[in-house]
Amino acid sequence: MRLWVLILAAIILSFISLFIGAIDIKPADLLDWDSQQAQIFLISRVPRLLAIILAGAGMSIAGLIMQSLSRNKFVSPTTAGTLDAAKLGILISILLFSQAAYMQKIIFSFVFAFAGTILFMQILDRIKFKDPVFVPLIGIMYGNILSSITTFFAYEGDLIQNINTWLMGSFMLIISGRYELLYVSVPAIILAYLYANKFTVAGMGEDFAKNLGLSYKAVLNLGLILVAIISTTVVLTVGVIPYLGLIVPNIVSIYMGDNLRKTIPHTIVLGVVFLLICDIIGRVVVYPYEIPVNVTVAVIGSLLFLIMLFRGRAYAK
């Protein structure tokens, strides 16, 4: 697949995404800058599109980094407890400070996402049985344990509804002023690209990396920090989007290999395309209402994940 084909697809889908929704807006309406349509376009449609692009690119890159560093094709923010840990962090910030400020939520969510992912990497180091299919199962169990802790304390603190908004990934509530945190993931993605060679070398394993003179631990930590930053910004603005970081990097890996400097641009654009398609489907099937994007992503994503599991056992090893 050529990069420009993907970019073209992303542009067309972006255009479609801007002009569907409960209120009918035509490109011609935008000529009148003061019309209600133009206002809606600026306050709701454009932010929504930007949020989709940033979240799609971010989650795909986060998944790519995790797969490279863990040397397992099935590790991603969804299958390593990262997103669940971020959620737990948000809950604890709410419990500790009854009126948690946005900044406190961000910090707690980041610290938990980072620590939770490191803990999972430690568990991975320790288990002897390393069937590539087995690893994400452990990760999902681990994520569910974190999630159940979150649910327990949320129940005790009467916060179930509050926490459920983080659980459900959706672009429905994205309006201008409520998504800007996502821009934090832009420098994270740029850093990921600048460090692409280091991540590829680290992905060849600790011995290999040391042979080439790479400070393995430092690269590992940097990678996990980037993953935690991206996951935090996405969970706090959009909510949990499952499978994205799992499916997209794997598709790119199948047709382009694992040289991150080459694959990162494709991973970014394919992530955007995938999420745009899922969001558009969610907005069209029950029009004028909509299905949250995490549902469409989960349906399409889990299907693709299953195909990968059955077809790709040999490839993943």
Binding site: R71, N197, T200, V201, G203, M204, G205, F208, L212, S253, G257, D258, N259, A316, K317
Partner: peptide, 14 residues
């Protein structure tokens, strides 16, 4: 090693 690199890419990392 389970990284999908081409022979040339691998040698380049040398």
């Amino acid at each position: 090693l389970n990284v999908r690199l081409t022979v040339r890419e691998l040698v380049s990392f040398g």
